[in-house]
Design a protein around this nucleic acid. Sequence first.
DNA 1: CTGTTAGCGCCTTCAT
DNA 2: ATGAAGGCGCTAACAG
Lengths: 342, 342
Amino acid sequence: MAATYKDIQKMTGLSLSTISKYFNGGNVRPDNAEAIKRAASELDYRVNSFAQSLRTQKSKTVGVLLPDLTNTFHAQIISGVSLDLMHAGYGVIVGSFGESEESMDDAVEFLLSKMVDGLVVVPTAAGRLPVALQSASNGHPPVVVLDRTPSDDVDSVTVDNERAGLDVGRLLLAHGHRSIGILAGPQGLSSTSQRAAGVLSAFSEVGADVPDANVVHTALSVEQARQAAHGLLTRTDRPTSIFATNSELTVGAAIAIRELQLELPGDLSMVGFDNVDFARALPPGLDIVVQPVPEIAHAAAELLLARMEHAQDGQVAHRVLQCSMMRGASVGAPPLAVRSVR
Amino acid sequence: MAATYKDIQKMTGLSLSTISKYFNGGNVRPDNAEAIKRAASELDYRVNSFAQSLRTQKSKTVGVLLPDLTNTFHAQIISGVSLDLMHAGYGVIVGSFGESEESMDDAVEFLLSKMVDGLVVVPTAAGRLPVALQSASNGHPPVVVLDRTPSDDVDSVTVDNERAGLDVGRLLLAHGHRSIGILAGPQGLSSTSQRAAGVLSAFSEVGADVPDANVVHTALSVEQARQAAHGLLTRTDRPTSIFATNSELTVGAAIAIRELQLELPGDLSMVGFDNVDFARALPPGLDIVVQPVPEIAHAAAELLLARMEHAQDGQVAHRVLQCSMMRGASVGAPPLAVRSVR
DNA sequence: CTGTTAGCGCCTTCAT
DNA sequence: ATGAAGGCGCTAACAG
């Protein structure tokens, strides 16, 4: 059995309230403090956080919820958020659902039943908030939404995706490209859609038409992206450039390119997203858009801490950060003639 | 305020114990059940898991602890473990520490104070179990250790690392290589050390000597691996092959190879570890060792569930699974003459 | 099948 | 500075 105050009481003869005060930083006579300390370590005492939270109605814990632990980008972010939060004295419990709305709801229920003091959520691609969190005034704990923006009335941290897309488009245009294929992720996913939209508006600025067929929607999986890229790149009117709008899509596109033995940037120019290490390893060095991961994590932690410690008042905050480009060597002039593959 | 049984009691007039029985699947008269159900949904009732766990001394929750959420291999495993565990009715809370022993201990304390019913742990590279878990008989919840084996008296799931290394060595030898550089991870990390040892014994089987200087120890970071690989590959007596013993080290090596503009397998043969998508994307297709991730996850979940549901009896279990090779095209004959770089 | 009661471990007035 | 008492929300006897 785990030790409790009562056990310490037996060893020290002190009252429960004194022991409690000791553990909560109150004033206790030095000799008593010493006695409690000794007893505690002797008994391997550990506070029972259930009892504590039941009593105080606070868990000093925040929940982090994301679609997929396997996504390196999300993993990096929550890794940063966790650090900040732990630093502020909060425990962090991470849960994942599988891009399925139903299990997202279950996961939220689970966290709420743990009475988390706050929640960081990356919603499903479909862009719906968990039902339990939908009514802002329903007394649920504060929530910060990351990466994807399902609704206006909840705090969020996102990046300027449209702008990032615009930059990508302009880069490719500057190199002379007038055709592009875009791996645009799932229909309705705000982040990837906005990135694609940015490219499209850059192209339309110069009157370069991008046919609908060049914007391919898939789930956020490497394999689906590979297939989509394969389809795009084996067309006779293959685009001279390709843009992958997130990390999985980037990897999938790279696989297709390797399988088709296309050379970057000789046969094709490519711009990817997010995956710095991958971009550095892939010959000839991949041009990618990089999100400011540490800043995103920081902003999220900051927003949430503010809500948890001060009252639930104040305006809804939408922090929007800027991406940057990490240049590689995968963007060059379009080929004079499209070399056929397969 | 969150609703409690009392609120339901006020609405239905039923007693607390009837309400409790309803929520715990006991026999309740249909009309009463209906009334409770209505009241609960009306009040948006959610069980307070603190009170519940305080009372039952069970949290129906297991903790998963790993060094780094960012490690894709670990992320994949715990993703699988979580699924199995949730399926069995357990909640999962994931915590990470940063390869630091101290924060590992803190994280364990945190999880224990949450009274988790079981623990899945990937220990620090140094191979030490969290202090709180060291005395097997200390009444702590059951623990399953993954990937790294710090101790014999706790259940574990690992792969046959030495055998994997042996296979890699033999593959390279069969292609005619007699020299190899090994990125062997941190000193004392069981997994990567065993993989390196396997290669060494394969080479010694045929009397090929591998100088100590060719076995390079670094932390498990992409950047450190890149630097180490760079050093190895710019030596005048550069080895004709290189083996990276885990996923980060694989990516780091690939970056160095790209930077030095070495061609795989013309200038150098390479075998990596774990990262399937990466291996498929990297030209010309990377030969890697693949761990049976789903099986590892399954075995871990199974072992832990058995310990949690049945008594703490029985022998300590060490499940050892076999890896397989995923062939790419990065292993070929050694170059006739070593082309100098830089 | 339902109600009454006691208590899980802790914190928090309120006295002393 | 310390002690006594009550209760957070829930479950598990036990009675009815």
